[in-house]
């Protein structure tokens, strides 16, 4: 099965700023892929490169089998794109906008359009410029889902929306999920966790991980080791142990490579005198925070090392 989106060593620079750095990403067909990351991580840039709004500086991206640089015209009849900061034809009414877009898509499904209008309770006669942000986003969703696109790309679609609108939009998306691939960027980890099948974590333009949600959930565990007596943080901890810290007799860390069989054995060998070891599943938010903090710690310690080397030199 061909991936819906794939990138090879994709980079994008703006002057001296590296927004995306050697990205290798694969979004399988039929997936609901959530790209998460802090502000400025490069999520929007990646989406704009995928949509051929920006040209890549290096590497390449393929969207539905088409080189992103050649993505234009008819290719967009199979792609639905909604962005939080996308300009809409504000002077049109919702009905006029749907009428206008309808003519561009041979496969436009009027029944689905009517269904979405009802589902989102869209006021057809009101101009877009007079709609609330949530309503405007619903209108954008309706105009991007009505032609049953093979790929839906959403850039921060839920940002700044109230929970009711978010739920309505997510519901609308989930209904489309069986027939499409959804690629979205978001900060809203709680919502993403409820419906995403895949997740990728972006940090300063680099993809730190990208995998199925279930695999990720199985891979990360919050580990608590209760020792017999207080002891300092042991040295030479594995790289997969994130954010290790001790307090009295308790050692806590996030295991980023947890295996139900080998991990308990490994811990038992490392801490033979441990009174108790617990492995707690983590929420996506907790995983996200652990990975983000760990990456920043590593980056700052790397900078410190570099500074020490420079001083020594």
């Amino acid at each position: 099965m061909n991936p819906a989106i794939s990138t090879q060593s994709l980079s994008k620079r703006f002057g001296r700023t590296v927004a995306v750095d050697g990205l290798n990403l694969t979004v399988p067909e039929g997936a609901i892929y959530a790209l998460v990351g802090a502000n400025g991580a490069g999520k929007t840039t990646i989406i704009k490169v995928l949509m051929n709004i920006f040209p890549p500086t290096a590497g390449r991206a393929d969207v539905l089998g088409i080189n992103s640089r050649k993505l234009a015209g008819k290719a967009f009849t199979r792609i639905g794109y909604v962005s939080e900061n996308q300009e809409m034809p504000d002077w049109m009414t919702v009905g006029a906008m749907l009428d206008y877009f309808r003519a561009f898509y041979p496969q436009w499904d009027r029944t689905l359009e009517q269904q979405l209008i009802r589902q989102f309770d869209l006021p057809l006669k009101r101009k877009l410029k007079h709609l609330s942000r949530g309503m405007k986003m619903k209108a954008a969703f309706a105009s991007s889902l009505s032609y049953r696109p093979a790929l839906i790309v959403l850039d921060e679609p839920f940002s700044g929306l109230d929970p009711l609108v978010r739920d309505e939009l997510i519901e609308g998306l989930i209904e489309r999920a069986p027939e499409t691939t959804i690629f979205l960027s978001s900060h809203d980890l709680a919502e993403i966790e409820t419906f995403s099948s895949h997740v990728g974590y972006l940090e300063r333009g680099r993809l730190l991980f990208s995998e199925e949600m279930s695999v990720l959930a199985n891979r990360f565990r919050e580990v608590t080791v209760t020792l017999e007596s207080p002891s300092p943080l042991p040295g030479n901890l594995p790289d997969s142990w994130l954010q290790p810290q001790t307090a009295d007799c308790v050692l806590r860390f996030v295991h980023s490579d947890f295996n139900e069989e080998s991990s308990p054995r490994e811990l038992a060998e490392r801490f033979p005198s441990a009174r108790d070891v617990s492995f707690d599943p983590m929420s996506l938010r907790a995983i996200f925070l652990a990975v983000a903090k760990s990456a920043r710690d590593r980056a700052s310690s790397g900078q410190d090392h570099a500074a020490i080397k420079e001083n020594a030199a």
Partner: peptide
Amino acid sequence: IGTTQFWLTRPYEW
């Protein structure tokens, strides 16, 4: 000019 226009990601042929 710009990156946020609606028509950029619609099936417009230049």
